[in-house]
C-alpha cells in the first residue's frame, strides 16, 4: 500500500482533495439573503411608523455589533472606546447642519469624517496592544466628550437638538432615516463580506488567531488592522449620526458613554465573535432583551454583564456557532475541503 499524501495522488483517485468556496445551495442562500436585504427597503411603504422606528434602532445595533466584531473578531483589537466615533459622528452631523449642510448629506459626511478621525487615532493607538489599546481608545472617547462639553456652540454639557428635520412630516422623516440606516448597514456588510471573501479574509482570520504567527508568514498585519480600524470608525460614526437622527437630541455624557461599548461587547459575544453572521444574531437578541428587560434598570445591566462574562468564558464563539453547526448551508466565506468520500468533509471558517 502506498503512503503518499492524499493531495499528491494522481487525478481520478477516489480520495482526491478539493477546496471549494461555495456550493450551489450556499450561492442560492446568499442570493436570497441579498434579496431580503434589498426587500427590506419596502418596509416603510408597508408598515406603520412604529415598526419603522423599531427596525431603525435594530439596524443601528447591527451596525455597531458588526463593526465591533470586525475590530475584535477579525482585527484582534478589543476597543472600549468606539463611543468616540459614535459621539463624533453625532456631533459632526450637528456641526455640519449648523454650517448649512442639510441633515441627510450631513450624516453621510459625518460618517466619512469619523473615518478620517479613526485614521488619525489609529496612528496613535495601533502601536498599543491588547488591554492598552482598549483603554487608550477609551481615553480618547473621554477626552472628546470633555472637549464637546467645553464647546458652547455645540450645546456644551446640556446637549443639543438636530435642526432641519422639521421640514419633513414625521412619517417621511422616519422613512428616510430608515432607508439611510439600511443603506449603511448593507454597505458595511457588503464591505466586510468582500474583505472576507477576497485574499484579505484569510489574512484577517490569521491575524485574529495569532498576530505574530500571521506576521511571520508574510501577512501584512499593520495595513489590515489600520483598514479595519478606519472601517469601524466609519460604521460607528454612521451609527452615531443615525442615533442622533432617531432621537433628535444628544448629550455628550450619553453619546460618549462607555455603555455603547458594553452593548457592542454583549451583542458580539452572545452572537458569535469572529463570525460574519454572529453579530447580526447578537443584535437581534440584544434588541429583544432591551425591549423585555430595560425597565428593570440596574438588574438588566447586571444581567447583560454577567451573560457577557459567561459567554466569554464558556462559549467564546457565541450562539451562531451552535446554530451554524446544525445548518446545512453556509455563506460562501469559508474554505471547504472535500474529498469524494462524503464522511470526510471538513470546513474551515
Amino acid at each position: 500500500m502506498t503512503t503518499a499524501p492524499a493531495a499528491t495522488r494522481p487525478a481520478g483517485n477516489p480520495t482526491q482533495l478539493r477546496i471549494t468556496r461555495s456550493t450551489s445551495a450556499s450561492r442560492i442562500t446568499s442570493g436570497v439573503l441579498l434579496a431580503v436585504g434589498v426587500g427590506l427597503f419596502a418596509v416603510p411603504t408597508l408598515f406603520g411608523t412604529n415598526a419603522v422606528v423599531q427596525l431603525t434602532s435594530l439596524f443601528i445595533y447591527m451596525i455597531l455589533a458588526v463593526m465591533w466584531n470586525a475590530l475584535a473578531g477579525y482585527g484582534g483589537m478589543v476597543s472600549v472606546g468606539q463611543q468616540a466615533f459614535i459621539g463624533f459622528g453625532a456631533y459632526a452631523t450637528i456641526w455640519l447642519t449648523q454650517h448649512g449642510v442639510s441633515p441627510f448629506p450631513a450624516m453621510v459626511l459625518a460618517a466619512v469624517s469619523a473615518a478620517v478621525l479613526a485614521a488619525l487615532v489609529a496612528l496613535l493607538v495601533l502601536q498599543l496592544k491588547g488591554g492598552q489599546l482598549a483603554v487608550g481608545t477609551w481615553v480618547i472617547a473621554e477626552a472628546l466628550g470633555l472637549l464637546i462639553v467645553l464647546d458652547t456652540g455645540l450645546g456644551g454639557g446640556t446637549g443639543i437638538s438636530l435642526q432641519g428635520l422639521n421640514s419633513y412630516t414625521p412619517e417621511l422623516r422616519h422613512a428616510y432615516i430608515y432607508w439611510l440606516t439600511l443603506t449603511f448597514l448593507l454597505a458595511i456588510l457588503g464591505a466586510l463580506f468582500l474583505l472576507l471573501r477576497l485574499k484579505t479574509g484569510a489574512a484577517l482570520q490569521a491575524i485574529r488567531d495569532d498576530e505574530e504567527a500571521a506576521a511571520s508568514l508574510g501577512v501584512r498585519v499593520r495595513p489590515l488592522k489600520f483598514g479595519i480600524f478606519v472601517l469601524a470608525g466609519f460604521g460607528c460614526g454612521a451609527a452615531g449620526a443615525l442615533i442622533l437622527a432617531n432621537t433628535l437630541f444628544i448629550q455628550p455624557q450619553s453619546i460618549f458613554g462607555v455603555q455603547y461599548s458594553a452593548y457592542m461587547i454583549f451583542m458580539v459575544l452572545v452572537g458569535g465573535l469572529g463570525t460574519f453572521e454572529g453579530p447580526i444574531l447578537g443584535a437581534i437578541i440584544f434588541f429583544v432583551a432591551q425591549q423585555q428587560f430595560a425597565d428593570q434598570g440596574a438588574w438588566y445591566l447586571i444581567g447583560l454583564g454577567a451573560v457577557a462574562v459567561l459567554f466569554a468564558l464558556f462559549l467564546p464563539r457565541g450562539l451562531w456557532t451552535v446554530v451554524s453547526d446544525r445548518l446545512p448551508v453556509q455563506l460562501p466565506l469559508g474554505y471547504r475541503l472535500s474529498t469524494s468520500h462524503p464522511s470526510m468533509k471538513e470546513q474551515h471558517g
Binding site: A72, G76, V78, V80, G130, G131, A134, S261, A262, I265, L269, G297, A298, W299, L301, I302, L304, G305, A306, A308, V309, A312, L313, P316
Partner: peptide, 20 residues
C-alpha cells in the same frame, strides 16, 4: 482578548450591583 471581555463584563456587573 478574553480577560479584557470578562473584566469589562465584571465591571458592568459591579457598577450596577453597587447601584442596586
Amino acid at each position: 482578548l478574553v480577560p479584557l471581555l470578562t473584566t469589562f463584563g465584571l465591571s458592568i456587573v459591579l457598577q450596577n450591583g453597587f447601584l442596586q
